[in-house]
Design a protein around this nucleic acid. Structure first.
Lengths: 225, 225
DNA sequence: CAGTCATTCAATGTATTGATTGATTAATTG
DNA sequence: CAATTAATCAATCAATACATTGAATGACTG
């Protein structure tokens, strides 16, 4: 748009793309859209962003080619466009985490304990659930929990966790999970739990991985899409 | 910074990161820095960005943790910070290219010919160079060529290519190269050459790959770092 | 075909960002 | 220690981006 003579126009294109990702609201919306097609109003509810504002951010994402739309009755459904979008998000996320860790290593020691964010494997999870050693904690928003969750999991959205700690048994290991490997909600939950003295782990698999590998036939509470 | 209550603060951090990458100048600077430690003035020359402006963009990159500095006499040398920075850039680039291709497929047919941007392998390059079938064209800026180039390559920076087409023999295949797999200069050069009727290919390896695998001992004109 | 629901558009005010200029600091040289 | 070189800072102005509001469109419903 400006000094096009300086270098190559692809830098402008990449910059436009990056700028589109340069707002927390749009990242939040993308995250939700990545889980499946959603209408605008659902997105406002999941994200807490005002309606018109949501719509405008969505349109920026659309202009940038990151999402596509389709009409269904009076609703407009947004879905991820194809292309390596999640690669970009994943790369950005891991870079941000990298920075985070570097900062934490300097100022914080509780969080930098090597096992503090350690995840628990699916096999170990199943075994220890059977032995009733652990409590499985779903920290996603109410709506997502309602739409389907792991068997035996209780739901405390991470925003309410601090107030509702009393619901968790002190003597058991708390295993938090959320949407999948990229989801940070459960990591956040761990921070809270560990700060209050719970022995907590993270189930990295999250819901999608569990679903993809029907490990047991205990019955999932999956109701609808 | 604003609605931190809506979701998780990591979204703000990622957004900040993305916004830092959301300006062509900073991407250009990063690209050059990625090739090795450089002082501010060198960067202004390579990029064509005004001095004070360059300095300010560099400081944004530094604040974002993407580059680090070290003083050497009166110069300040910038280098890439560690962490998966190039992953992010690569992911962004490939997403941008993906979009580009999709657009090209719709509006352009010259450029979408399957072999138009096809690369030539190192082995084929060496063989056909020996047989004098091809002309090797280095499309990087003069300074970079001066610092080292492939044996036998001639240098026409891509910006001057259009005016200096007369220097290229019509009867040979032109093989363009630039900085490496991610570099788009040579793709741009191909567009120009093919538009004027040359048979042209791209050597995807670029300079770094060539250097990393000393294929022949013809002697490289690599002078200094 | 009037009413309503879902979404988008248009307009406004404010805040942030970027480029430019000239002044300033830091390290080196004579 | 004055002069020079390299980089940053500070101040300004223009351009963009964002949130909010209220109006307008589009599609279904009775």
């Amino acid at each position: 748009m400006k000094n096009a003579d300086v270098h190559h126009p692809i830098f402008d294109e990449i910059a436009d793309l990056a700028r589109t990702l340069g707002h927390a609201h749009r990242l939040v919306l993308l995250r939700h859209i990545a889980d499946g097609e959603l209408a605008v109003e659902q997105l406002t509810q999941l994200s807490g962003i005002a309606l018109a504002n949501t719509s405008q951010h969505l349109q920026q994402l659309k202009r940038a080619g990151l999402v596509q739309t389709r009409r269904d009755g009076k609703r407009v459904l947004y879905r991820l466009a194809d292309g390596p979008i999640e690669n970009v998000l994943g790369a950005l996320r891991s870079l941000a985490n990298h920075r985070r860790e570097q900062i934490r290593e300097l100022i914080d020691d509780t969080m930098s304990r090597p096992d503090s964010l350690e995840s628990i494997s699916r096999e170990e999870l199943v075994r220890r659930m059977r032995d009733d050693e652990i409590v499985l904690l779903d920290v996603r928003p109410r709506e997502e929990y309602a739409a389907g969750h792991l068997p035996g999991a209780i739901n405390i959205p991470v925003g309410e966790l601090e107030e509702r700690l009393a619901e968790l048994p002190r003597e058991k290991v708390i295993v938090a999970y959320c949407r999948g490997v990229q989801c940070v909600l459960s990591a956040d939950a761990l921070a809270i739990l560990r700060a209050r003295g719970w022995d907590s782990r993270r189930f990295e698999g999250g819901l999608p991985e569990w679903l993809n590998s029907s490990l047991d036939d205990d019955g999932m509470n999956y109701e609808s899409g």
